[in-house]
Amino acid sequence: MKTPIHTNIPFIVTKKISNANGFLLPSTLYNEIKTLAKIPIKGFYLHEVPESTDYNFKVFKNAFVNDKLTIQTQLVRKNSDSYLVNIMVTKQKNKLNHQETICSALFSFPIEKSHFKENKTAC
């Protein structure tokens, strides 16, 4: 089965992952996207995907209880020493299909020969 290079994952903000004021906890959002960042590159490794070696995480807006978010993951580049995975978290702003960006992130995962699966169809 081929690994998806781009995915959209739904995510609903609940009371359990919010603070007393109903705001989504940034640490919870970070942990979720850190886990999901591995999806586009899973097929390139023989074993578990190693931890990211570098990341950039920016929060633009708050998310609240009952917000329906979409976490988009995308493999954007393969360098000689790493894969770069871009993440964007959005929510629908209104009924006109406008998306509001909640946060974005860029994760770098190392290419180590001991972890890497030779795949001629890879990027």
Rank of each mutant, 00 (worst) to 15 (best):
N19D: 15
F23C: 09
L36W: 04
E51P: 01
N79D: 15
D67R: 05
N86W: 09
D54F: 13
K2W: 05
Y45P: 00
F64S: 12
L84M: 10
N62M: 11
V59E: 04
F60D: 04
K113E: 14
N21H: 13
T73L: 04
N56S: 14
F23V: 01
S114A: 15
K38D: 08
T28E: 15
K120R: 12
F116H: 14
H115I: 03
F64P: 01
A63D: 08
S82Y: 07
K117T: 04
N56Y: 11
H6V: 10
S80W: 06
K42Q: 15
K42R: 14
L96I: 08
P50T: 04
N62W: 07
T28I: 14
F60N: 03
F116R: 12
N97I: 00
T14W: 02
S52L: 12
T90H: 07
T14V: 02
K34M: 11
N56L: 13
L75I: 08
T7W: 06
F57S: 00
R77M: 10
G43T: 09
I33A: 01
K42N: 13
V49R: 02
M88P: 02
K93H: 08
S104W: 05
A122Y: 06
K15H: 14
I33M: 09
P10Q: 06
I71P: 00
S52F: 15
N79G: 08
S114Y: 08
K42W: 10
H47E: 12
A63H: 00
E112R: 15
L24W: 00
V85P: 00
S108K: 15
K2H: 11
T73G: 03
N21Q: 15
H115A: 09
K117E: 07
A37R: 00
I9H: 08
T73K: 00
F44V: 04
V89T: 12
N94H: 07
F57E: 01
D67L: 01
N79C: 06
Y30E: 02
T90R: 07
L24S: 04
H47S: 14
V13A: 09
T70C: 10
T121C: 02
K117N: 11
T7E: 09
T3E: 02
Q72V: 12
K15S: 13
L36S: 01
S82K: 13
N19A: 03
F107L: 03
A20E: 12
I12M: 08
V13H: 12
T14L: 07
H47V: 03
F23T: 06
